[in-house]
Amino acid sequence: MISYFTWSEFDKSVEQIANKCKFLEFSGIYGVPRGGLCLAVALSHKLKIDLIPKPIKNSLIVDDVYETGITLNTFKDVEGAKFFVLFSKVEPGWWNTVHMSEKKEWIVFPWENSKNVQSDFNEYHKKRG
């Protein structure tokens, strides 16, 4: 199943995260490459906090999708960090999410090349079996 996430939905999601974080103090915001970069830039502008090249103490760490946890888990022990993802394919534990989605759902973000959707989808599922 392929779902398209629009710029309008992205903007609303940025608002939701910003509202949950507006009274918190962060040392910076880190976007997990590649999927978290657009979200990090948008939140950096909205919350007026600096983008940082790597996660540090008390940072806001963001990504596009939490599926297996492999990527975000590498940052789990960053002291005082707060974590947000746009989509979580499992019930959130120590991270926060804006949207829940099914495991098999393929999400196409507005910054992705829509011409590659089907080949990206097929390649992803081939790798995951």
Rank of each mutant, 00 (worst) to 15 (best):
P55W: 05
K54G: 05
V78Y: 03
F84Q: 01
E25T: 13
P53C: 11
T71K: 15
I29G: 03
E91P: 00
G35C: 06
K76Q: 07
W94R: 13
N19K: 14
T68Q: 11
I17L: 01
V14I: 14
F83H: 02
L72G: 03
N19E: 15
G36Q: 13
L72V: 13
S27L: 04
S88H: 02
G28K: 02
I49V: 12
I56N: 15
W94L: 02
A81Y: 10
F83A: 05
V32Q: 10
F83L: 07
D64G: 11
P33Y: 09
G69R: 05
A81W: 04
D77A: 15
W95H: 08
S88G: 05
T74M: 09
L37H: 12
V32Y: 09
K76D: 02
K89Q: 10
I70Y: 10
K22W: 12
A42N: 06
N73M: 13
L39I: 12
P33D: 05
D63Y: 07
I49P: 01
S88Y: 08
G80T: 06
W95A: 00
N96K: 01
W94K: 09
Y30K: 06
P55Y: 09
A40E: 03
T68R: 14
G28A: 10
H99R: 05
L47Y: 06
N58I: 04
T71E: 12
K82N: 05
P55Q: 08
E15F: 05
Y30V: 04
L72E: 08
K82E: 06
P55E: 03
T74C: 14
E79G: 03
L39V: 13
V98F: 00
S44T: 01
K22Q: 13
T71Y: 08
K12L: 11
L39Q: 02
E91A: 07
W94M: 06
G93W: 11
E25S: 13
V90P: 03
A81T: 08
